[in-house]
Design a protein around this nucleic acid. Structure first.
Lengths: 208, 208
DNA sequence: CCTCCATGTTTACAGGAGAAACTTATCGGG
DNA sequence: CCCGATAAGTTTCTCCTGTAAACATGGAGG
């Protein structure tokens, strides 16, 4: 009522409020059907109000996915800029950051990599995804320059890493990384196998 | 009319007909919303008829996913039993078979690895998925015994392979394997990186 | 101060999930 | 050979969703 904020009209930045509500729900439930009406309800507005800010459901979904890629990129950057010395260690940290992000934002992660968020339909979403991928590319270039990683086309290593981490995240989300299937430390173990293919020379697993 | 088959009553195995219709649609469109009514319509029955054979939509979805895992397993088995000599070659063949399966059954593949097909809710689905995974496990055991692959816990290699192939398939399906991102032969290149981590010794890439 | 328009609300409609009541055809038994 | 019982399919109904259109409101600019 007495808000002096720059809230535009009635509600006060309903656009942001809707996004926040949706993000909160996507963080809680990967199986949420994502109904626009539920978002509106939880935000305390009528079910038609969102249409004043998003032409349709898809526009909101893509905006949420875009935010997800930015957040994921931030998490990766943070992990890579930690004071871990070895490239191998940095890689593991970044991969775990991705998987952590997925586990803490299951719905959002699913959305980001689902075709509901069609990247060809939204330039900004496409750019955000490319930016995040670029973080991986730059890291691999550096790791090759430093001699830690083998000198093969960066694009090949990037595809392998992207696929592997994404695959691990999806499997973790869907609870398909059960012990009976893949042992008790599946993520670390799988990353070690990948790293054996990325890194130059041998690596003493027992030292880790 | 003159059928002597054991078809139950009116339609003639409506259950099978519904499954076939659904599979056909899942093969065509990964973005299909999958409405039970559309399946019924295309099968030529009323929208309530499917409920006589599937308690709810989820039961049908899980049955479809189960069939998908069986088919995927068959594709993998076929690829592995080809007359390719090297373990490395066999692995690539099996991985490509998986990705091919995904590209030819985009909707079904999505369904199989989505949480719509909750594996904890259906024993038969769970078993089918485990069976398919078992094909990979047995191959890795053989590859290690033969000396082609490194002797590390099979579960670790399995997790890495499963994640990588699944990740590649998902990225391919969502058209995220664009050249600008990952070069022009992303699948083969990514598998090579993974194989460098799986295999013992060095491998002359130029010979392939 | 008054009017305009961005931002809301209400109302309306098409389509889906699923339950319940109703219909029909097949089968096993008298 | 007819007769319920019952499986299989249809109609109808309720509740939900996405989305469009009509209506309301209140803050900003003339």
């Amino acid at each position: 009522m007495s808000e002096t904020k720059d809230r535009p009209y009635h509600h006060g930045d309903l656009r942001r409020a809707l996004i926040d509500t949706a993000l909160a729900m996507l963080a809680l439930d990967q199986n949420w059907a994502f109904t626009l009406r539920e978002v509106a309800r939880r935000t305390g507005v009528s079910h038609a109000a969102p249409y004043k800010h998003f032409r349709d459901k898809g526009v909101l979904l893509r905006e949420l996915a875009r935010i997800g890629f930015v957040q994921l990129g931030d998490a990766m950057t943070a992990a890579l800029s930690s004071d871990i010395s070895s490239m191998r260690g940095k890689f593991v940290a970044a991969a775990l950051a991705c998987i952590d992000f997925a586990l803490h934002n299951p719905g959002l992660y699913h959305l980001m990599f689902s075709s509901d968020a069609d990247k060809t339909a939204d330039r900004q979403l496409h750019d955000a995804a490319m930016n995040t991928f670029g973080i991986l590319l730059r890291f691999l270039e550096e790791a090759q320059r430093s001699g830690s990683f083998r000198s093969v086309p960066v694009s090949a290593q990037a595809a392998a890493c992207w696929a592997q981490v994404h695959g691990l995240a999806m499997l973790a989300l869907n609870r398909q990384l059960l012990e009976e299937k893949v042992g008790n430390e599946p993520v670390q173990a799988a990353l070690d196998v990948l790293l054996d293919g990325l890194c130059r020379g041998e690596w003493d697993r027992t030292r880790v």
